[in-house]
Design a protein around this nucleic acid. Structure first.
Length: 575
RNA sequence: CGGUUUGUAGCUCAGUAGGUAGAGCAGCUGACUCUUAAUCAGCGGGUCCAGGGUUCGAUCCCCUGCAAACCGACCA
């Protein structure tokens, strides 16, 4: 990178780095640093146990400095939080040589640098627990200035809030916004709670293919890729359901997977192209059992995370205490529209949609129509956790027919805060029925539904060997985390949400510029003047102005290059 | 994919009824031995997102593009 491309502050930091080197200080030492204490532990335990804090060693990033002559306060942040340092010149420089304080600490160190300190803990006159530094070591120099966020009495100043920068440079977000790390720690706690819950019951965590020849198990548009050696298309999985059920066929009693799924669809506040779903399948169970299992799991997640089942989500207070209300889908529609659609055919359902003001198109079958009615008129009403049960058969091709009504399936979705959180079935294990359902999907596909499922013949073959009655459940981990951490957007619970690529200015290589006669040392100057492509330079009409601009940059940046003549400059671009 | 809004210093934001720009923090120089948004004095820092157009002149007006946010469409 050429120096003309750097900001003033970046140049100063690079200069500081060189000065450190001249002083014999390696700003990126290889040695381990013997950390003995963390910020949060010290703040919590110092008063009760002063003796154990007479010699502490900790490391972290400088987040702020208040220099007062020969004594200073600094704030460093480690993985557990922030703590204040008290640095006195004559303590870190006991001898005549005061360079470490006067030059290194005061001038060559910056906010953002990572340092290690040794010293003892004490409480300042204003009552803040701090580390009195006796020894200071540079562990890594920061060359880019951080956004400086300050806080006073709970109010934040100059907060780093631009979502684009926060997501693109999550590392910066994590450094300066303390609450961000909490959200991600909670996400992992949620996953750990679930994993423990399953393992305690003896279910096995497994891994299944992400690259699939047939993207099955859900209705969605997949990402497609290509395998060179096999010369076949492969799809990134949209679900792992069909593979997990093959494992139940194979004899496992319970299997689960925290799976990244990929769907080639829109992106917004609640959708990322890749997202995480936990799916679990348990043999010899049905969806009624799974409802109890699910509510026990969700309640436990809330309890372990918050110590209570009551969680604030936006302006709503949601109580995850079980049991949750159970409402059939047709019952829900009846309740919120006053219309009993049971037994209606496709035509009648189209009429109902029209009456309710719901847009439809001819490609929609019965299942999709009912789904639309529910989505438009009912879904948003279920704020407290509610199981919606017994979905129409057309919209659940992998689900067992309802034991009491062949029009319906043994399926439930868990609704929370007006949105679907989990989805579960008594799994369809009749291979003949399954093949017919796949064929129905084919017909939908031919009718224009581009999300209809493919036929997975190997999956049918597996069922033909016999799968025990099984119940399966899938739950969106990103959305569960959003609920449990009170975040409004999925980007806040993904470390690196998908973003459009950053646009890079097109640049010609240096050789392209030297080829038209520009001396190599002048190429950065030409770039600084705003010409990254030779073509743009050749389009310049006012060569006098260009000449003056270039000489001006030379002078302003004290580059000390002998200026070219007007004729030289004209010669470059008039070819 | 459609509508609305936004893009100005490292960060957060002003601003110019069209005459190439300001503040706070951060930075630099100096003062200061318990400060905490430290304080005080001084200084520097900007292709005002990119490309076209109108104009004597555009950061501002118009068009196109890029990126983001919000609201819709689609979906989990």
């Amino acid at each position: 990178m050429d120096h003309l491309e750097l900001s003033e502050q970046e140049l100063i930091r690079r200069e500081s780095l060189k000065e450190l080197s001249k002083l014999g200080i390696n700003a990126y030492p290889a040695d381990l640093y013997p950390v003995s204490h963390y910020a949060a532990d010290i703040l919590e335990n110092f008063e009760a146990n002063e003796d154990k804090h007479q010699e502490v060693c900790l490391a972290g990033r400088i987040m702020g400095r208040r220099i007062m002559g020969s004594a200073s306060f600094a704030e460093i942040k480690d993985s557990t939080g922030r703590i204040q340092l008290y640095i006195k010149r004559d303590d870190i420089c006991p001898d005549e040589d005061k360079t470490l304080y006067n030059t290194v600490f005061k001038r060559l160190l910056d906010i953002g640098d990572i340092i290690g300190v040794k010293g003892f803990v004490f409480v300042t006159q204003t009552g803040e627990t701090s580390v009195h530094v006796k020894e200071l070591t540079i562990l890594a120099k920061s060359l880019r200035p951080l956004p400086v966020v300050k806080e006073k009495d709970g109010r934040t100043f100059d907060a780093f809030t631009d979502p684009e920068q926060r997501y693109r440079q999550r590392y910066v977000d994590l450094i300066v916004n303390d609450h961000v790390m909490d959200t991600f720690i909670k996400r992992t706690q949620i996953v750990n709670t679930m994993r423990n819950f399953f393992n305690e019951k003896g279910y096995l965590e497994v891994e299944t293919p992400i690259l699939q020849a047939i993207p099955g198990g859900a209705a969605a548009r997949p990402f497609i890729t290509h395998h060179n050696a096999l010369n076949i298309p492969l799809y990134l999985r949209i679900a792992n359901e069909l593979y997990l059920k093959r494992l139940i066929v194979g004899g496992f009693d319970g299997v689960y997977e925290f799976a990244k799924d990929f769907r080639n669809e829109g992106m917004d506040r609640t959708h990322n192209p890749e997202f995480t779903v936990m799916e679990i399948y348990v043999a010899y169970k049905d969806y009624k059992w799974m409802m109890e299992f699910t509510e026990e799991m969700v309640e436990r997640v809330a309890l372990e995370l918050h110590g209570t089942t009551v969680v604030q989500v936006g302006d709503k207070t949601i109580d995850f205490k079980r049991p949750y209300k159970r409402v059939t889908m047709l019952g829900a529609i009846k309740e919120h529209t006053g219309i009993d659609i049971s037994g209606m055919n496709e035509e009648q359902l189209h009429a109902v949609c029209k009456k309710l003001g719901i847009e439809t198109d001819p490609s929609m079958g019965k299942g999709k129509l009912i789904d639309e009615i529910f989505g438009e008129k009912c879904e948003a009403n279920y704020i407290q956790p509610t199981f919606i049960t017994d979905y129409p058969i057309e919209m659940s091709p992998l689900c067992k027919k309802h034991r009491d009504n062949p029009e319906l399936t043994e399926r439930f979705e868990l609704m929370v805060n007006g949105k679907e959180l989990a989805n579960a079935y008594s799994e369809l294990n009749d291979p003949i029925d399954q093949l017919e359902r796949f064929q129905e999907q084919m017909k939908l596909s031919e009718k224009g539904d581009d999300e209809a499922m493919f036929i997975d013949r190997d999956f049918v073959r597996a069922l033909e060997y016999g799968m025990p009655p099984t119940s399966g459940m899938g739950i969106g981990i990103d959305r569960l985390t959003m609920l449990m951490t009170n975040q409004q957007s999925i980007q806040e619970v993904l470390f690196f949400p998908q973003m459009k690529p950053e646009k890079r200015v097109e640049k010609d290589p240096d050789e392209s510029f030297t080829k038209i006669g520009i001396p190599l040392e002048w190429v950065p100057v030409v770039r600084k003047a705003g010409y990254q492509r030779v073509k743009d330079l050749l389009d310049v009409e006012n060569t006098n102005k260009l000449h003056q601009d270039l000489c001006g940059i030379n002078k302003k940046n004290k580059l000390g290059l002998p200026n070219p003549s007007k004729e030289d400059v004209a010669g470059w671009i008039n070819q």
